[in-house]
């Protein structure tokens, strides 16, 4: 029973971060209608920013959120503005050109980081990295609890932004109906920059939050990109609320898989869930939550 509860707790904590990753991806998917296959790689760059600040100046990883998020926001805007949007104007056979471009961007980001930091494992070990506290028999990792707390705050902030602000409303309108939105006078190009920037900043935040407990190397991006799209498919492509459910589901599934099946299956569990969702719940949780 304790093992079960322990697994539940650690899966849920991890799920909070996954939700953040998934929301970033699903936001981009909703507005641009594309899957961003550089999502994990963008997160990886954010992690290197956090790592550098820590290694060079001893900045606490949580503090470096204030640097990594804006920096990656700018990176996202740049990618959207100079690499993705121009593709819309070219007449091509494959509508997937934008997706392919994100693959290329992901490769370049990975290799540039490898060039700078080499392939070695890096980490930002802090005094609290291994700290835990107990409730009954169940241990809670301190950094993961802080992470969940910050992730919840960011989620709330994101929803307030989407619901209350003009820009947020424009983003939602564009996601719902591009043509109608541009008829309403929404500057679609600007919305795409902001959305890509925002989605990138969110995933960068997740990466930064992971830094105290995780290790870092350039190839870490790929697996996280895959997690991100699994989360989105679980939640229903383009659904922000769905991404939260999807993130937590994936976190739990991975934790239970690792505990009860085998460690080495952890990565595969998300992918198998992906196929199962396609089979039995095409459309993901969105089918149930309707948002």
């Amino acid at each position: 029973m304790d093992l079960f509860l322990q697994t539940l707790v650690s899966g849920f904590l991890k799920g909070g971060l996954y939700a953040l990753i998934g929301m970033g991806m699903t936001l981009i998917m909703g507005v641009m209608g594309i899957i961003n296959l550089a999502h994990g790689q963008i997160m990886m760059v954010g992690m290197y920013i956090t790592y550098s600040l820590f290694a060079l100046y001893g900045v606490d990883p949580y503090l470096s959120l204030f640097v990594s998020m804006p920096a990656i926001f700018v990176l996202g805007v740049t990618i959207q503005k100079y690499l993705l949007n121009p593709l819309l104007r070219a007449e091509t056979i494959l509508p997937e050109n934008q997706v392919l471009m994100t693959v290329g961007v992901g490769m370049v980001l990975t290799e540039v980081m490898r060039f700078i930091f080499t392939s070695d494992y890096k980490s930002a070990r802090t005094s609290y990295s291994n700290a835990t506290f107990f409730l009954g028999e169940i241990s809670f990792s301190v950094p993961l609890v802080i992470d969940l707390f910050i992730a919840i705050m960011m989620t709330v902030a994101l929803f307030l932004f989407l619901v209350k602000t003009d820009t947020g409303k424009s983003i939602r309108a564009t996601a719902q109906d591009k043509e109608a939105a541009s008829l309403m006078g929404i500057n679609a190009e600007r919305i795409t920059y902001i959305t890509f920037g925002l989605g990138s900043a969110l995933v960068a935040a997740a990466g930064t939050l992971l830094m105290p407990i995780f290790y870092l190397f350039p190839d870490i991006g790929g697996p996280f990109t895959r997690k991100a799209f699994v989360i989105c498919v679980l939640g229903g492509l383009g659904s922000t609320v769905g991404a939260i459910f999807g993130g937590i589901t994936l976190g739990l599934a991975e934790a239970f898989g690792a505990t009860y099946v085998a460690m080495e299956f952890e990565d595969m569990i998300g992918l198998v869930m992906f196929i199962l969702v396609l089979l039995f719940l095409p459309g993901g949780f969105k089918r149930i939550t309707k948002i």
Binding site: L83, P86, L87, A90, T92, L94, N97, L100, M101, V103, G104, V105, G106, M107, V108, T110, E111, V112, R114, F115
Partner: peptide, 18 residues
């Protein structure tokens, strides 16, 4: 950095020769 070159190639090709 040959993989980097490869990645840059991907970006350039899709951007300029779709």
């Amino acid at each position: 950095a040959h993989v980097l070159g490869f990645g840059v190639l991907v970006v350039l090709v899709i951007r300029y020769m779709p």
